[in-house]
Write a protein that binds this DNA or RNA. Structure first.
Lengths: 118, 118
DNA sequence: CAGTTAATTAACTATTAGGTTAAACGTACT
DNA sequence: AGTACGTTTAACCTAATAGTTAATTAACTG
């Protein structure tokens, strides 16, 4: 795996379990066992997923007695969002083209309408 | 690797070579050799990267004589953008909090101001 | 038809990812 | 001190990634 920040972030996001964990954390802090609960997967597996998320900077952890509560950290997602901006025109553009097309259709309809009226 | 669309897309993006290829294609259509040119990497390696991008739906290809020109397809990026929306509040929120803080400071300033006036 | 150019496929190698079970660690409870 | 709870580490397995070189396919060119 590449080690640049964006690659590490994308790699971390390329797993449904990890994305589900992030979604859970979006609701607020949670312990490892809590996070593991929805999955048919051993605790060490979840622990590894968390480590991946942590290395990507998407999760931070504190210590509280024997628990290691996890929190969402959104900065890398912000970076992804920023990276996306250079491509946004490509789907907005096609919407614009669809818009153009629809407007053209409407214009056509108007013409026909006029024709029918005359 | 997981086979759901989003995982496949993120995995495809988790490589700097592939992201550079996308950036190149954002400038317009290009052949495999053209795309390979900036990299110190064999052609088959690029071919494989292109296949990954193609499977993720990020690139489409046509045939033109012995060339197989590649084009950017942005739909999966749109999906990523959409997925991100559920997290946008997390970095906008912190800006809001900064906003709140600044407003509080201002309010404080006003109070002081009033005090001085009275 | 022979040769050249563009790209892919095949076969191989090394590394990493994602999972397992079993053992160890750290803290709290009695 | 001993036990229970929450979590991580160790050791291992399998499959997938990312790269290589060599051979192959496909289309144009003289």
């Amino acid at each position: 795996m590449s080690t640049d920040q964006l690659s590490v972030t994308f790699a971390a996001l390329a797993d449904p379990t990890r994305r589900a964990i992030l979604a859970h954390l979006a609701q607020g802090e949670a312990s490892v066992t809590e996070l593991a609960q929805p999955f048919a997967m051993s605790l060490p597996a979840i622990s590894k997923h968390l480590k991946v998320l942590e290395r990507a900077g998407l999760v931070t952890r504190s210590r509280e007695a024997q628990w290691r509560p996890c929190r969402l950290a959104a900065e890398p997602l912000k970076d992804v969002d920023h990276w996306l901006t250079q491509y946004r025109q490509f789907w907005e553009q096609s919407l614009d083209r669809l818009d153009d097309y629809l407007q053209e259709l409407q214009a056509e309809e108007k013409k026909k309408g006029r024709k029918h009226k005359t």
